[in-house]
Structures are given as C-alpha cells and as structure tokens.
Design a binder for these strands. Structure first.
Length: 295
DNA sequence: AAAACGTGGAT
DNA sequence: TATCCAAGTTT
C-alpha cells in the first residue's frame, strides 16, 4: 500500500485531539498513550488536559503522592496504570534528565510501557520509524493486507513484522504512516461497521478484493465483568476516590456483600499499592496521610 | 501463554 | 437489557 495515499488522507481527515496539537511534548504523548490503553478517546481528553496542566513535566508528577495520582486518574479504569505512570515519571526525572527517552529499548524498560506504547512514543513524539501495532492497526492489516474480516490472535513478533513491512525507509514518512494506519482503524476501518466507501485504500484492500468475507478465526474471549474481583476492586477504590480523608473499614464493607471476596479484593488493592491502611486502622489512597500517625 | 486488570458509551 | 468494544501490560 502506498504510504503517500494514507498520509495524505490522514493530513486531511485526522481528528484534532489535544495531544496532537503543536507543541505537545513527548511527556504529553506518553501520558496520552498510557491513558488510551483500553480506554476510549472521549473519556481520556478531559483527564489528559487536567493532568498536563498540573504536571507538565515528569518531575512534577514524580513529586506528588501516589494517592494524588490515583485520584486524578479518576474513573479512566485500570488504575494500576496511574501507579506505573507515576513510577515511570520518577525514573525519567531521576535517570533521564526529566526527558522521555526516544529509543524503543529504553522506553520498554519503563513500567507500564510495552511493545505498543514504546513504539507509539518513538514514532509520534520523536518521528522515529517504528512499527506501531495496536488493535486498530492489527485490524487494518488483517483486512487490507491479509484479506480477512478481522485480526486473529495477537502475535507480537508477527504483528510487528507485518507492519514493519509496510513502513517506508524514510523516518518521518514512516512515522506519519504509523499514525495514519491507527487513525484509519479508529475512524474508518472500524470493528463493527467499517466505512469502506470513505476508505482511501478501498480499491487496493485485500478484504474488498476477496469480497469482504466474514471473520473465520477463533472466537474472541468474551470479557465478563459483573461479579468479578475487578468490579469489587472498582467499588472499593471508588469509595476512597470519592472521600477527602481516611475512611473506617465500615465504609468499605457496605460496597459488596460477599465478605470473603471483599476482603480478598481489599488485600489485593493494598498489595498493589492502590490503597493504604493507617496505624489507626482506617483506609486511604496511598501517601495522602501519615501512615504511621493516627488522625 | 492464558488470565487478570476498570469503566461506560454504543448498538 | 445484554453484549460488544476501546491507542495494552503484566504475571
């Protein structure tokens, strides 16, 4: 597929997202990428704006308590991401001169940054040539290149190789193609009702040429939520997020009737460092109060 | 390498 | 109302 076609389409049709504005720092890009993991753009936007206003550099985030970070994370979900971002900021401030690394291997060494995020930061923040593979890109490649209805099981090695094959040699153009592929998957080549008539590569799409066959691979695992520990942890944490100060255990006991599951979830939150218990027995978000001194 | 890990809007 | 799904990472 022609990089110029897709990049031209991107330039004319890309959404104006705050982290794409001129002047966005690599730190801003990193924050957006972490927040966007498994979380829709619309929910990230307001939180990102608030976050960047409060903590415009990694060192600013590193300077506040974990609890403050978890509170600001709000209801984006998967709050361990907030903790890992806080850790990553601490490392960046202390070991990288407060500058987000531009090299994929260094990025991969930071907590919360995996195969996707490392390359997204390298490409979007630094204009590097890096195969950026997320769920959107996997779907675009499955259709446009392989002629399948949807992507099969992820395979980091093969997925990276597939996309690497599409990228031109020239760095800046490759980086632009990477973000164009993602955007195409996000707004045109979507999971449910792809807008194929608006697609810039409609004529050369292998899926179109094959007659848009149905997806035939293994069924995707359906993710349940109701009744899971995930739900219980969410309810417990929501009590602490919604309260300024420490709360007695009785406040947490009312969110879930199954005491065994409730206790296990509270223990796991303490273990994760998302919740802290004070000397007087009350619970708080971590680091917002003196753990050793009552009241 | 499968499973855990939040949340809420859209269909 | 129920299911799907959203810029993944970690263990």
């Amino acid at each position: 597929m022609d990089a110029g076609t897709l990049v031209g389409w991107f330039d004319a049709n890309a959404r104006e997202l705050p982290w794409r504005a001129d002047g966005t720092t690599p730190w801003g890009v990193l924050v957006s990428e972490i927040m966007l993991q498994q979380t829709p753009v619309a929910r990230v936007e307001p939180v990102w704006l608030d976050w960047m206003a409060r903590w415009p550099r990694p060192s600013a985030l590193a300077a506040v308590s974990r609890g403050e970070v978890v509170r600001a994370w709000g209801k984006l979900g998967y709050p361990r991401r907030a903790l890992r971002l806080h850790e990553a900021a601490t490392v960046i401030a202390a070991e990288h001169d407060d500058t987000v690394p531009s090299d994929v291997d260094t990025l991969l060494s930071l907590p919360g940054i995996g195969a996707y995020t490392a390359r997204a930061v390298a490409a979007f923040a630094y204009g590097r040539r890096a195969p950026v593979v997320d769920t959107n890109v996997r779907r675009v490649v499955a259709r446009a290149v392989h002629g399948a209805g949807d992507a099969g099981q992820p395979s980091t090695k093969r997925d990276l190789s597939d996309v690497d094959d599409l990228l031109p040699v020239e760095e800046k153009l490759a980086a632009r193609l990477s973000i164009a592929l993602m955007e195409l998957g996000a707004i045109v080549c979507t999971a449910r009702s792809p807008r194929c008539t608006m697609c810039p590569i409609h004529a050369e799409c292998a899926w179109q040429l094959a007659g848009t066959p149905e997806y035939t691979g293994p069924a995707k695992a359906v993710q349940t939520y109701a009744g899971t520990d995930r739900q219980v942890r969410g309810k417990l944490l929501d009590v602490l997020r919604g309260t300024a100060g420490p709360v007695p255990k009785s406040r947490l006991d009312v969110v879930w009737s199954d005491a065994g599951q409730r206790e296990a979830c509270l223990a796991s939150l303490l273990d994760d460092g998302l919740v802290e218990q004070l000397a007087d027995g009350r619970f708080t978000l971590p680091g917002e109060h003196q753990a050793g001194s009552p009241k």
